[in-house]
Design a protein around this nucleic acid. Structure first.
Lengths: 196, 196
DNA sequence: CGGACTTGTCTACGCCTGTAGACTTCGTCC
DNA sequence: GGACGAAGTCTACAGGCGTAGACAAGTCCG
């Protein structure tokens, strides 16, 4: 995987970080050992502790890295008038086949009951949910934002984690056509006092 | 927790099963040890192997038990004309506070990358998705059914696993009013060839 | 060229895991 | 009422985990 690399602290550090991110997303925090992570980076286990202090600190760095990356919910996308169509298309594309930029979500889901995971989920919550809520007008904006996140995450889980064949084998066009009205419904500020 | 119980094989077996189910749902298959499971049942670790053969076989029994239980997606609910309203209300109720009947889903999510978990997810997929697909008319029924599952699971995850405050503190009436149109949209057989 | 610092490996320790076998205690039936 | 089988516990064993410290090898500057 990683061919022999000349002595390069920065590159080694980055390789460990990347390997850890892959491993955590695939199997959760407890699902991968430092030996496995190190092997994925082409070094020995002790390098993890040398560069990151401990496995838990390594998780912290992985999360920080993920947080710093752009997301579907960019301010540009949120402000766009065709936001529902955009997010539907992006969601379908991102969950397509390769390229798993939902590492943060997977790590959080799969690393249950760790205080480290609790930190991760708190960060993710504040990050995504706040940003989305701010861009929504009308009543119940926090609730609508949360449900948008629920749809996004549920779709990701069903398509990538579970691998429901109805979603993974589907025509992307069809999925987009099905998702867009859902987002449109949630984004429209109405909630037109239909009942209660 | 479990007060001293007279020698009773059936009761002990059930206690282990219940403790395992709780533990698996809370921390995933690898997240709990047999000693912890046994302690929750008021016995020693060896009883797990005596009654179930191995930890993996125990997981199999837990999954089988969950599968045999009724779900939101009963044939009655699926056939009802007000299915969207019903499922929205049930979903909100079930994810309310106590009572976690989504153990199966949690176990599957949190027990990643185990062949046992793969079996679980296959069973869950066939179970829920097939039943739901069968009850939907119109085009793209499998895809629409899968997205319904995605919304349900995403909502459960965001409300119970993550604990998004916007959902856990929300007025149930509001959540129902927000969820119902989503389900209605997905259940209507149209997909009126709006584009493509 | 040679020392000095960095980069990386090796060995080992204590802890926890799932599991196995031998042992003890309780309940029951002839 | 004594014995046999069931129910449960104790001790132990490999194996994997995260981590620590001592050691080897590479790189770079004076």
């Amino acid at each position: 995987m990683t061919q022999t690399r000349r002595r390069d602290a920065a590159a080694t550090r980055a390789a460990i970080l990347a390997s850890a991110r892959r491993g955590f997303a695939r199997s959760g925090y407890d699902g991968v050992g430092v030996r496995e992570i190190a092997e994925g980076a082409g070094v020995t286990a002790m390098m993890v502790n040398r560069y990151f202090g401990s496995k838990e600190r390594l998780l912290g760095e992985v999360i920080a890295q993920i947080m710093a990356e752009p997301t579907i919910l960019t301010r540009e996308n949120l402000a766009a008038p065709d936001f529902p169509a955009r997010i539907a298309a992006l969601l379908v594309d991102i969950t397509a086949a390769g390229s798993t930029p939902l590492d943060g979500f997977l790590i959080m889901l799969r690393s249950s009951s760790d205080e480290a995971a609790a930190v991760a989920r708190a960060q993710i919550e504040a990050h995504y949910h706040r940003r989305l809520t701010e861009s929504l007008d009308g009543d119940l904006a926090p609730q609508r934002a949360a449900i948008v996140l629920a749809v996004v995450s549920g779709f990701q889980v069903m398509r990538q984690v579970i691998g429901l064949s109805a979603l993974s084998d589907a025509d992307p066009e069809d999925l987009r056509a099905l998702l867009e009205p859902l987002f449109r419904q949630l984004v429209t500020k109405s909630t037109p006092a239909q009942d209660r």
